[in-house]
Design a protein around this nucleic acid. Sequence first.
DNA 1: CGACACATGTAACACGTTACATGATTTG
DNA 2: CAAATCATGTAACGTGTTACATGTGTCG
Lengths: 191, 191
Amino acid sequence: MSVRHALLALLSEGPKYGLKLQQEFEARTGEVWPLNVGQVYTTLQRLERDGLVAFDDEASDGPQKGFTITDHGREELLAWLRPSVAEIPPRDELVIKILVAIQVPGVEVRDVIQAHRRRLVESMQRYTRIKAEAGPGDMRLALVVDAELFRLEGVVRWLDAADSRIGQLASERSDQPVGSSEATLERLAIR
Amino acid sequence: MSVRHALLALLSEGPKYGLKLQQEFEARTGEVWPLNVGQVYTTLQRLERDGLVAFDDEASDGPQKGFTITDHGREELLAWLRPSVAEIPPRDELVIKILVAIQVPGVEVRDVIQAHRRRLVESMQRYTRIKAEAGPGDMRLALVVDAELFRLEGVVRWLDAADSRIGQLASERSDQPVGSSEATLERLAIR
DNA sequence: CGACACATGTAACACGTTACATGATTTG
DNA sequence: CAAATCATGTAACGTGTTACATGTGTCG
């Protein structure tokens, strides 16, 4: 629900119309994340349906429509800006991939891990280059690139840890198995 | 598309029926990510529609249905396991949040950053505790927890970098502005 | 029998996303 | 005038997700 709330945030600065919202969304995110204009309109409809924004006849600079954020919308926006308790960590596609790959016949997990690792490192190098080329001028771009770099670094580290864990398991073969723990979900959930 | 492909992976080991798939999905992911049974059936329908799995009358252990992966399904699975080039980094909700929060009236971005940081550190402490309590018995759980810890660490580091960047900008107020760079999307895109 | 687990399924909705249609306005 | 740009909109589809209905088998 990033787009939804992002539009809400943009409208909190004042009435705007569809195209303007698209352009500003892309500008705010360093031109990194393109946003299909159509999605702006569909999202606006849904926001209007939920009473978070309202159409405003007065606030039009010309032939465009003007959308305004409502009080309810402002509440929603502030709630979104506030950190929320994540009961359960978000599903991570790569983690699922590796975990299921362990038992896919004809597939070597560690090969999958290494292949992904290579790609990730390539990506990091590319982003590092972009960062150097762009210079400190565009802070928004720098922030997005930073985020991606930190994220990729974390993923690479995890892959290394995972590879190590799986390697250990492989060498511990034919030892006595360890009892598995039950009801881990309860322990993970946040009260 | 994690669920879709995860089911495909489970079926690659042999014919299985709905409930079994749900149970195995949860088992493989360390019981961390619950999967609504209903979703298994809807996903199976979609997989069948796309010719990735097929219903198999023979392969039933009792009253249950047996689904088998097709050749096309195996191809799909292998393609999923292979790392793919990400043209554009995935949209990151927190990044968008911070970037738009910079201009939301009545909101101090750095407060938003610090609030999120606190929550993230709390989460990390909780997961570290879980990891210690669970012990090295359940590797799958350990891998999921590891992934979350590495991810959270990356996010915290980014928040610190972002806070620092924004702080710099604030102190550089009333200096001459720097020209913004155009067409950054092309530079970001992977050829 | 009643409760419970097993097992399947569906209708409905959410958001994200795109391709396409349609006017209006500007500009060469 | 024709092309390009601005601007709005919609129909359709994809995955994820849940609440709910339904039937079967088992066990105390």
